[in-house]
């Protein structure tokens, strides 16, 4: 049996629209992954603490509020500080094309914008989880 992939799905910051996050959570579940769903209005600190306790392989964050340039790097910095840089970080939501290179530079594995097929996200996770 191949290793069971564990993913934390979170909605950081102040945005109350979680349909996308739930959809991804459901798609990953149907792909045979264990999804820890932490819900709305998470701080980066909460997300990283949960990721460490849950020993996840990846964190997926959905951001629609426009605060992505702050929240993603913050999570990555906290992971680094807690010796957990091996946890893959991916993101999704309404994120302008122009902002993506900088986020990838900061250490985000991939950004999936609206229109992405869930099968692409599943494939990405399977290929990139250590």
């Amino acid at each position: 049996m191949s290793k069971l992939i564990r993913v934390l799905i979170a909605k950081p910051g102040l945005d109350g629209h979680d349909r996308g996050a739930k959809m991804i959570a459901r798609a990953l579940r149907d792909a045979g992954m264990e999804v820890i769903y932490t819900g709305l209005r998470q701080t980066p600190e909460q997300i990283v603490a949960a990721a460490i306790q849950e020993d996840v392989d990846a964190i997926g964050m959905s951001i629609l509020s426009g605060a992505h340039n702050h929240l993603f790097p913050k999570v990555i910095k906290l992971l680094k500080e807690q010796n957990a840089s091996d946890i893959l970080v991916i993101g999704g939501g309404v994120i302008p094309e122009d902002d993506i290179p900088e986020l990838l530079e900061a250490g985000v594995g991939a950004i999936f914008t609206p229109g992405t097929l869930t099968s692409d996200i599943i494939k990405y996770l399977r290929e990139n989880v250590q």
Partner: peptide, 26 residues
């Protein structure tokens, strides 16, 4: 059917995530 799961109990315990004296595992 798939072996997957949605583990959602943490949603109700978010305040506890940062407490150094609490460890939550789903």
């Amino acid at each position: 059917y798939t072996g997957g799961a949605i583990l959602g109990d943490r949603i109700r315990m978010n305040d506890l995530a940062l407490d150094p004296g609490v460890f939550i595992r789903s």
